[in-house]
Design a protein around this nucleic acid. Sequence first.
RNA 1: CGGGACGUGGCGAAGUUUGGUAUCGCGCCUGGUUUGGGACCAGGAUGCCGCAGGUUCGAAUCCUGUCGUCCCGACCA
Length: 477
Amino acid sequence: MAEKKMVEAITSMEDNFSQWYTDVVHKAELVRHSGVRGCMYVQPYGTALWENIRNELDARFKATGHENVMLPMFIPESLLQKEKDHVEGFAPEVAWVTHGGSEKLTERLCIRPTSEVLFCDYYAGIVQSWRDLPKLYNQWASVCRWEKTTRPFLRTLEFYWQEGHTLHETAEEAQAETEQMLNVYADFAEQHLAMPVIKGRKTDKEKFAGAVATYTIEALMHDGQALQAGTSHYFGDGFTRAFDINFTGRSGKVEYPHQTSWGMSTRIIGGIIMTHGDNSGLVMPPKVAPVQVIVLPIAQHKPGVIEGANAIADSLKDIARVKVDASDNSPGWKFAQWEMKGVPLRVECGPRDLEAGTCVVVMRHNREKITVNISDLPMQIPVLLQQVHDGLYQKALAHREEMTHTATTLEEICSIAKTKPGFIKAMWCGDLACEMQLKEQAGVTSRCIPFEQEKIADSCICCGKPAKEMVYWGRAY
RNA sequence: CGGGACGUGGCGAAGUUUGGUAUCGCGCCUGGUUUGGGACCAGGAUGCCGCAGGUUCGAAUCCUGUCGUCCCGACCA
């Protein structure tokens, strides 16, 4: 018995958070390792989760006027070279194709690490007049970055994402787009994933290669490390000048359009796991859960029980993603199995319940049990799913607040960074030197300059000069 | 990329020091009994011991290389 439990156990997160994460990813049957370093086989359950995320985001992009396109996975070296900061940022981690069949290529091709330059090359051919703007595009694709260390979802060589790329007549319009998409991400994270996020701007040191400004939503994971959950960049006209994308403006003059890009990736799945998961495994936010309600017949050999379970599932099929587990595993096995997979609601129905016209509903995140009349289920399930969502959000928010500290002296920030995981709020003068020093001495990096500023001191925590802004510092995935 | 650990049926391990018929638990298949927190009995199947070389009469075991995994650190939009 004890031995058996060992076999199935998930390492507890207090013992080793990284190992816990790895265990959950595998026990919940999200992915398996492929034979290629850092690349994963995404299993049906993981794929279904991603599809739910993708479908919702896609709908939100379309609702804000964007169209999907598909660009190639290869980038000729000369094209990648066109924007200096960009190539410097990405060249160290791209994969190169040098041969096609037995033929050696005259110019090697990189496998896209991101598609800015492809979009630029594309735009150059289709934009001539101010009437051609804006271009509001998005693509769903996978990209490749040759990372040194990899972890499922959080950092893989190949990962799936969407990348929005837009082109605008004016800087103001492009900036508004950048902000709009950051808000789309933030709203999605909070309303759909029950993941509280802090909206803000990245420092110059942390911003995207080639961007004028990078905006971010930062979430705090259960272990106190930060995760950039989504990002939105304003490029100004740096790329459009480098790629000679121009148009004839309203006044008849040649102008360069202003550009944005924004992305969210399968990394967000890692974020879901590390925000809501517990020592029994995954906890799925209801709105993206591949299975929202698992119906478990108890003593299913008895007459009418499976039929009863099927009838319950049938009554919910238009209301929630529901599944009946009528496999011949024991009930205890099924409880543990579906908890590992994080299904938000479990409906148990045995002969006693069915006779009484009731069932037991158990919430995954707090294991609360309630008895519900079967006839009330179609009305109750949406309420309960929302309750789980709210519960998850509140729990994550409370956790983040508990793990957010304030520091006003260098000594204090070093001591907090060493002893208390989480965010540290501190004032900053805006100098790179201070940012570097905090990394060096406290081991923290700037996570974001939040839009919602608080003045916690007058001077920079590092150099003592007048502070420009309050920054969230921490360690990041 | 550094430091450490590791790779043996689907999963978890023993066996490697000292070379000699590949073992155990779980899972899987068949049949039966069970069923409200990881059930039980009986029978059965599944291995180029990560891969490639080498040493040897003989390699899971020794040597070399390589691929992959995990943890810590560095690096990373």
